[in-house]
């Protein structure tokens, strides 16, 4: 057989799927079998006790692979990153403890503060706009016959990668020399409405942040719309009808009757988008790579880790992201626990 074929990633992929799937199924099947037939057989004098023991062990059999993966790939790295952020790599391998030095160095860098400022901007603008647009579309499409098609089209950017979206929007922001026809929509419109010279939108400090945010708003609005649309449908029809009979205007009904009833859902949408914003990396990486004062934390961290090879400061930046996510994490966990009760 051809050795190249064996080494090709496609074959490797098929082998991995087969091994992975049969490995998982085999693990679950045989571990159950051994538990029931060998360790605690439901026979003989201790049959009843054995069954109880087996049932105490079984949940952990079911959970074990997932717990291992979660622990190794998500829980352990949090602590390891914390450790890295407090140490410095020494040439030849190994780390030495440096305390808060990495953090101090990071806090002195203007690029970090630029990233912080921009992240705060993103945190305010993107969730607000995406939620607002989502709510608007959800409400408006609720009453019209082609609403589902409209929603489907606005939802579509959710399927597009951040990188793909960056290319799409870079074309919108494209700039040609003044004497040529503009092929970017934004400049074409700008000139059409009387703008003098075509602008290179992505290099205008401060304002270029908003052009990047537009991409994420464009993507996340669909998410907000889907969730809020379901929430709006869940509002008891009678409350709206009662308001109509009471003589409330459509606007009053929307703001005084509907929005208060879906406040919890709005909060969920807001926080979910907030988390996405905190992790935003691809868009900035693809469109400006943090130049022209558009740096954000995730990209700053990537720069430090893989360009400057500075694991200490990179990990410190990662911890800052974790710190910003933490309140939402705590809030979510508390809600989940309340719901379990």
């Amino acid at each position: 057989m051809n050795l190249d074929l064996l080494n090709s990633p496609a074959v490797l992929g098929v082998v991995t799927i087969v091994l992975g799937v049969s490995g998982c199924v085999g693990y679950f099947y045989f571990s159950n079998l051994i538990l029931d037939k060998v360790i605690f057989p439901p026979r003989g004098r201790n049959a009843g006790r054995n069954i109880n023991y087996a049932n105490m062990v079984r949940p952990w059999l079911f959970l074990l692979p997932a717990l291992l993966a979660l622990g190794l790939y998500l829980a352990y790295p949090v602590f390891k990153t914390l450790h890295f952020s407090l140490t410095e790599r020494v040439p030849g391998g190994g780390n030495v403890w440096v305390g808060a030095a990495n953090y101090q160095q990071m806090l002195k860098e203007p690029k970090f503060w630029e990233a912080m400022r921009n992240n705060m901007l993103w945190l305010i603008v993107v969730p607000a706009l995406a939620t607002a647009f989502g709510l608007l579309v959800a409400q408006l499409t609720d009453r019209i016959r082609w609403g589902n098609i409209a929603k489907s089209l606005i939802f579509m950017p959710m399927a597009i990668s951040f990188v793909g979206a960056s290319v799409i929007w870079k074309l919108v922001y494209d700039t040609r020399p003044a004497e040529q026809d503009q092929i970017g929509m934004l400049n074409a419109l700008y000139i059409f409405f009387g703008g003098s010279d075509p602008q290179t939108w992505l290099t205008i400090p401060f304002w270029n942040n908003f052009f990047l945010m537009a991409v994420l708003v464009w993507i996340q609005t669909g998410f907000a719309m889907v969730i809020l649309s379901a929430a709006l449908r869940g509002i008891p029809e009678e409350t709206v009808e009662a308001a109509i009979v009471d003589g409330a205007s459509p606007l009053t009904i929307f703001f005084k009757i509907k929005v208060p009833q879906i406040r919890a859902t709005i909060l969920v949408v807001w926080t979910t988008i907030t988390i996405t914003v905190l992790k935003v990396f691809d868009i900035v990486f693809a469109m400006t790579n943090g130049q022209w004062e558009t740096q954000v934390l995730a990209n700053y961290m990537y720069d430090k880790l893989f360009r400057a090879n500075d694991w200490g400061v990179g990990s410190a930046a990662a911890m800052v992201i974790m710190l910003l996510v933490a309140p939402i994490l705590v809030w979510n966990v508390r809600n989940a626990r309340n719901e379990m009760r």
Partner: peptide, 8 residues
């Protein structure tokens, strides 16, 4: 049958 599972 206190400790016998339902099926049995």
């Amino acid at each position: 049958v206190n400790d016998v599972p339902p099926a049995q």
